Simulated assay, not measured.
Amino acid sequence: MDTPKSTKMEVIIPAYRMHTQSFVNVLEGISEEDALKRIENKTNHIVWMAGNFVNMRYGLGWVLGLQTEDPYNDLFFQGKALDESIQYPSLAELQKSFHEVSPKVYQKLLKATDEELDELFEIGMNVPFVKETKLNFAGMCLGREDYLCGQIGLMRRILNYPGMKYDMNENLTY
């Protein structure tokens, strides 16, 4: 494993890499047609969930100084509600974007210093026990990614796909 500058990243880095694997695995084999299905018009579709996941990666990168913008930011920023009148990007387009941004964000995570991670970053959650810092924002991004992978995993089963596998691709180094 790569060594981060900050020991504060020793929990974040492995979780980030596991989420990379999970994202790839949870989308494995899902058709573009099924990725747009909703359950009783109450759920988001998989494309929206995947797009929000990728948007979290761009957001984390931005907070850490990455000057790369999500091409689909207007569709997914801050969990913007699904709009059935909009044509969303395909899963393939989202996966491409994911693989473009994720290694860049990973490098930013590795290079982050204690001082940078301790910088205030106002999220606006107003939760008294959460100090709004860049480090805590990174943790919240990972929490959101967990949630989205779980939601996609549930949709896999509802749409009659096998459950997500936990195979590891050792060549996927971010």
Rank of each mutant, 00 (worst) to 15 (best):
F76G: 00
F76I: 01
F77A: 14
Q78W: 10
Q78P: 01
Q78R: 12
Q78L: 15
Q78Y: 13
G79C: 08
K80H: 05
A81D: 12
E84H: 04
S85F: 08
I86N: 07
P89S: 06
P89E: 02
A92R: 13
E93F: 01
L94C: 04
Q95H: 10
Q95P: 04
Q95T: 15
S97P: 06
S97C: 15
F98E: 06
F98V: 10
H99D: 10
H99E: 11
H99K: 15
V101G: 02
S102C: 06
P103F: 08
V105T: 11
Y106L: 05
Y106A: 06
K108L: 14
K111W: 11
K111P: 02
K111I: 07
A112Y: 05
D114Q: 01
E115P: 01
E115M: 05
E116C: 08
L117T: 03
L117G: 02
D118M: 08
D118T: 06
L120C: 04
L120W: 03
L120V: 08
F121T: 10
I123L: 12
G124I: 00
M125W: 14
M125L: 14
N126S: 14
P128A: 09
V130H: 03
K131S: 12
E132L: 03
E132T: 02
T133M: 04
T133G: 02
N136C: 01
F137S: 01
F137M: 12
